[in-house]
């Protein structure tokens, strides 16, 4: 039984219209120390080449790689979505893959997107796998935008976690190299780190995120901790359905943020599906409060979490500490009867 094969066994191809972008919305983010509206656009592309070859254990986009999307189709998506711009100064551009993969987003299309968005916004954020980034690509990009931030999914700095849990074959070395390229060209780097990839106990997940944060700090301008959420037809989903995976407690995310206060990079977290069973969650009573606090912290609106408490904090503590003795990464609350 091999992880790469399990990722493939789990996936189910999804149908889509190549001429329609996936989604767009506006959220709050920090720009130059101020909270501003950030425009999020997700373009439809042929998807992530790694997802095609193998795929990450928590990534739902592995189900989006069945069809080709022609450059003309992406340009059509650009034209459609640009009409929705409402003066947001910050834009985040995602594909179900890598913005700097020439086979996924051709250089022409990439320049069109950057040009059109650079015209309209002060800062553009794009995402890619670190080892795909080339010097010429970043330099070309800088011709079209004032400020460029390149988001890189590092996930963890622990090689075992990357290979045997996330199913990635690159790590901090490739990440550091990409950061060097980006910085040399005048771009900044946002590092994504996972909180609780599969197979890690709650305690191990906290320790892994904290250590990864410190190790990635020299190669990051922003570090965003991503609590793993359960996306359909992924390894994580397969484990979740069997009571073998629980997304992290929000208390764990809080602890990670508290213990990475000393980083020079800006530290933040936006828990996807926070407070829901498939996202980072607590007991149900305190979830809204804690998610809001994490969002406030990420926007620089709060410095600590000292005011937060709930009865479930004791359960979280016992849960985190006991999994190691139970010799299991499974969710004891899901599998144990009362």
């Amino acid at each position: 039984m091999r992880l790469a094969q399990l990722v493939k066994d789990e996936r189910r191809p999804r149908d889509f219209d190549p001429r329609e972008y996936i989604s767009t919305w506006t959220e709050k983010d920090l720009l130059h120390g101020r909270v501003v509206d950030a425009w999020v656009i997700i373009f439809r592309t042929r998807g992530c080449y790694w997802a095609r070859a193998s795929g990450c254990s928590m990534c739902g986009y592995v189900n989006d790689v069945a069809q080709e999307v022609a450059p003309a189709d992406i340009l059509h998506q650009v034209d459609t979505v640009l009409r929705k711009h409402e003066s947001q100064p910050l834009v985040k551009v995602y594909t179900s893959g890598n913005f700097f993969d020439d086979h996924e987003v051709s250089p022409e299309v990439r320049e069109r997107i950057l040009h059109d968005l650079g015209d309209r916004c002060d800062k553009v954020i794009v995402e890619t796998l670190s080892h795909l980034l080339r010097k010429e690509q970043v330099e070309a990009a800088m011709n079209h935008v004032d400020e460029l931030e390149i988001a890189l999914g590092l996930e963890s700095t622990n090689g075992r976690v990357l290979r045997q849990s996330v199913n990635k074959v690159w790590g901090l070395k490739e990440h550091a190299h990409a950061t060097e390229l980006a910085h040399a060209a005048g771009a900044t780097v946002k590092t994504y780190l996972l909180v609780k990839p599969p197979f890690l106990t709650e305690l191990e997940a906290i320790e892994d995120a904290v250590r990864s944060g410190h190790e990635a700090d020299p190669y990051s301008d922003t570090i965003s901790f991503n609590p793993v959420n359960v996306q359909s037809r992924t390894i994580v989903d397969r484990l979740f359905r069997r009571g073998e995976y629980r997304p992290p407690w929000l208390w764990s995310v809080v602890e990670v943020l508290e213990r990475t206060e000393d980083l020079k990079a800006h530290v933040k977290s936006h828990p996807t599906a926070g407070g829901m069973v498939r996202g980072a969650h607590n007991c149900g009573t305190c979830d809204r409060r804690v998610v809001n606090a994490i969002e406030e912290f990420s926007l620089g609106l709060r410095k600590d979490f000292d005011d937060l408490t709930c009865e479930c904090k004791d359960v979280w503590r016992a849960y985190s500490e006991m999994q190691e003795f139970m010799l299991t990464p499974a969710d004891p609350l899901a599998v144990l009867e009362t």
């Binding site: 197979f199 890690l200 484990l239 069997r242 073998e244 010799l327 299991t328 990464p329």
Partner: peptide
């Protein structure tokens, strides 16, 4: 140290 995989993936192959 335990292997770290749950019951349904008890036999997952690890290089080490």
């Amino acid at each position: 140290p335990s292997k770290g995989t749950p019951l349904s993936m008890a036999d997952l192959e690890f290089p080490e």
